[in-house]
Design a protein around this nucleic acid. Sequence first.
DNA 1: CTGAAAGCGCTTACAG
DNA 2: CTGAAAGCGCTTACAG
Lengths: 345, 345
Amino acid sequence: MATLKEIGEELGLSAATVSRALNGFPEVSEATRKKVREVADKLGYRPNRVAQRLVTGRSGMVGMIVKIKPDMSADQTFFEMLTGLTAALAARDTDLVLAVDQDGDPVTPYKRLLERDMLDGFILNAPVRNDPRVAFLAERGIPFVLHGQDRADPDYPTFGIDNHAVSADAVKMLAQLGHRRIALINGELKGAYASDRLDGFRAAMAEHGLAADLIRNDASFESHGYTHALDLLAGPTPPTGFVCASTLIASGAMRAVRDRGLSVPGDVSIIAHDDALPLTRAINFEPALTVTRAPLREACDPLANMLIDHLNGVPAKDLQVCLKAELIIRGSSGPAPQPERSDGR
Amino acid sequence: MATLKEIGEELGLSAATVSRALNGFPEVSEATRKKVREVADKLGYRPNRVAQRLVTGRSGMVGMIVKIKPDMSADQTFFEMLTGLTAALAARDTDLVLAVDQDGDPVTPYKRLLERDMLDGFILNAPVRNDPRVAFLAERGIPFVLHGQDRADPDYPTFGIDNHAVSADAVKMLAQLGHRRIALINGELKGAYASDRLDGFRAAMAEHGLAADLIRNDASFESHGYTHALDLLAGPTPPTGFVCASTLIASGAMRAVRDRGLSVPGDVSIIAHDDALPLTRAINFEPALTVTRAPLREACDPLANMLIDHLNGVPAKDLQVCLKAELIIRGSSGPAPQPERSDGR
DNA sequence: CTGAAAGCGCTTACAG
DNA sequence: CTGAAAGCGCTTACAG
């Protein structure tokens, strides 16, 4: 493995100059830079990260904790994030170190990882409201970026989507199509995202003068979509519109609608939030699914970059992004069915 | 963060002596060692891994590639391994760096990981026969340990179970119970483990003078266990015994047996290989499942230790372990049903 | 525009 | 049994 010194010797330059040339320092002449680049390429130079890390005081590693649910339901999103984050971090010369949370206190895996290694920071995923990990890391001055939003006014970097608007937009669209009985099949309420969606749902329903009484909060399984939808449809005043937490839940809900002998969107409209995960593609539904869309994968680059920018001194207030999911109307939503009039008109 | 120098200053010792005391060098006096330990504890000393890595030339990181199948079927075993490996490696001061293989050439993710970082070695999982990753890494002199066995006579560290014996033991047990028609519902044949199991099955069937004609090789899903078992049971001479690649497949097979109106183990015996994954516990089957058992989790410590021992100079030939899975007889296996005699005897 | 020097925190021959 | 010194490969003030 070639070193800066070896490159320098070949050119009669010092290692310092070679370092500056390779690192794009402005004071190096273009001629020198060019020669250095050539020799570096010829020798197949790769900087020794460990040496860089020692001198810069950075480890070049950030941590993330994987929470393994007993039912493994986190997997799909986990792999999506893992793929995107490793790539995004690699582009910033950073490694992702994973640790597994095996259902204990939420901060212990962070403690362990911090003790063992000098990690530069953390990516916090799947926050709950006022996430305890935030207090833990903030207290110790460990930098991190939060994926999502766990409180109203954070003083650390965050990247996420506006989950309040996700539900609100869905309700608004259905209400404009004439739906009056709209149900929410939400995710598990412990997740901050789900409680934001619930708030958004209630607010939008109230705004349209509708009763927000058809609500289920549960893990994002197809089977839950099915059973909750079936149950809601069996009620006294069944919904004509479903707002679903995920395409998986929408899939179950759609199956339930059909098992009741109803059609989508003729009798019941369905809209879901779409993380754009590879397995359950909204476009492949019959009819194609109307969604609020925010590809999970697209959170990876910002998360990685924001964390590293923060490590480089960018203040947290400049690193807080909340995107709006895109509303995409497809075939699963339509006008509310005409009420059957009993007065004969 | 305290350093060796600071500890030394407090005691009037050199950093060198402190280093030796802390690292258990025999020439340090016990008195000195004790004092050093105390001060180190008092100051909360943690060695700077990056500095250690620079001087030892080791990165303290090993790599593993996660192969994400489109159906995410690798997840359960992946998380099991991730949990065990990170813990086992941490005990040896080593980090696990993951990269994701997105369905391309099997060696490209290794190339990328090697280019980016100075990894000390790799853990190779889910080998195929004569795995191409082996040639790639061996050619470059990169140390690795293979989980499983991809060829007859490897010259690198390997840890796995005797998959030939897994099937052979299952067949032998069923044959001794009088079963003559024994089916194998195997994993996907591209996996080296599955082809070993197939070989073992055929060899044992031949040894007992039985025809090995009821064989299915397919991904390890419950649904595959169900459809293959159903199909095999519908044949002209249906099996009375099933050897299943996994508890998941056994679960499907058992469902199929019952859907045919048959009972376990009265009409059909079922034995499966059990990785002891948390989700599908053999003991929870009704009746409890007879298995060959080899907890996947128990491979993690040996894999981590063997790789690091190898990095420390232990020759590959001393780092090749092939365990036998344990045969555990439970309620799902029993004597072959008495053939209904048509001659009236 | 470039170099010499110091230093990041550790380990390890080499002396004594 | 312990210390002084060199060195791992880099970065970065400080000089010139």
